[in-house]
């Protein structure tokens, strides 16, 4: 993983000289500003569907699809939305795409649709999507917003796949449903408690690798309600 980090960062800086915007906006979401592992956003799906890799990957890709589409549409019509009602407008656009992705999954990949269940509906309130709409898509041109959506979506998917891989291998001694021989499953890791535990370990490891101090409070920078949130202001609640 460390190697991958280095090469990605290298390409990132190299490309930056030629065309500063596009590559930076694409790559930042994957590692540097990873919405889940660094930004600590979207905790609910990260914990809920990652007992298996399949669930994590399905959730990541579904969220990525919604994120790209909503970023594109919001960026295109950003000047038409009155400022006072922008949050409800964003939420309706996001909910529309969530409904769409739900139908697509139910028609073409029913097992994933059944596995994710109500959490597919809850993509609507995933704060990564609303956060990117508010912070990025409503202020930037369409192409950049799509790249931002692809990067952030890929970062989210990466985090979910890492979580799912670790939890499935340790918790059920399998990977993508394939049994791994000679491994005794520690089933607690596949249960809810193991989700919290694993995420805590992963965030601590990410902090160690990136040599940054671990975040002291939850990432509220991307939260649309941060102006009213007591914990975003002082972090003292």
């Amino acid at each position: 993983m460390e190697n991958k980090t280095e090469t990605a960062v290298k390409t990132n800086t190299e490309e930056k000289k030629n065309s500063p915007d596009y590559f930076y906006e694409f790559f930042k979401g994957i590692l540097k500003e990873n919405p889940t592992l660094v930004g600590l956003l979207g905790m609910c799906p990260t914990l809920a569907v990652t007992a298996t890799v399949k669930g994590g990957l399905g959730m990541g890709l579904a969220t990525m699809f919604v994120l790209i589409c909503s970023n594109l549409i919001i960026s295109l019509i950003k000047n038409l939305i009155p400022k006072t009602v922008r949050l409800p407008a964003f939420i309706v656009i996001i909910a529309g795409f969530v409904t769409l992705v739900k139908f697509l999954l139910a028609r073409f990949i029913p097992p994933i649709s059944e596995l994710l269940g109500v959490y597919l509906d809850l993509i609507t309130v995933n704060c990564i999507i609303l956060g990117r709409a508010e912070i990025f898509a409503s202020k930037n041109p369409p192409l950049l917003s799509v790249l931002d959506g692809v990067g952030m979506g890929a970062g989210f998917t990466l985090a979910l796949v890492i979580m799912g891989t670790l939890r499935e291998i340790i918790g059920s001694a399998s990977w993508f449903g394939m049994k791994i021989p000679f491994l005794t499953p520690v089933s607690i890791i596949a249960r809810p408690a193991g989700g919290f535990f694993m995420l805590g370990i992963i965030i601590a490891v990410v902090g160690l690798v990136s040599k940054k101090k671990p975040p002291q409070t939850l990432g509220c920078a991307g939260c649309p309600a941060k102006d009213n949130c007591p914990s975003a202001k002082g972090g003292d609640n």
Partner: peptide, 22 residues
């Protein structure tokens, strides 16, 4: 430990609480 200060330790504590709820 330094690496666990803040959110990681909170998450591990939550894991133990969830264990109790199980």
């Amino acid at each position: 430990p330094e690496a666990f200060k803040g959110v990681p330790s909170t998450l591990v504590a939550a894991a133990i609480l969830v264990l109790g709820f199980m």
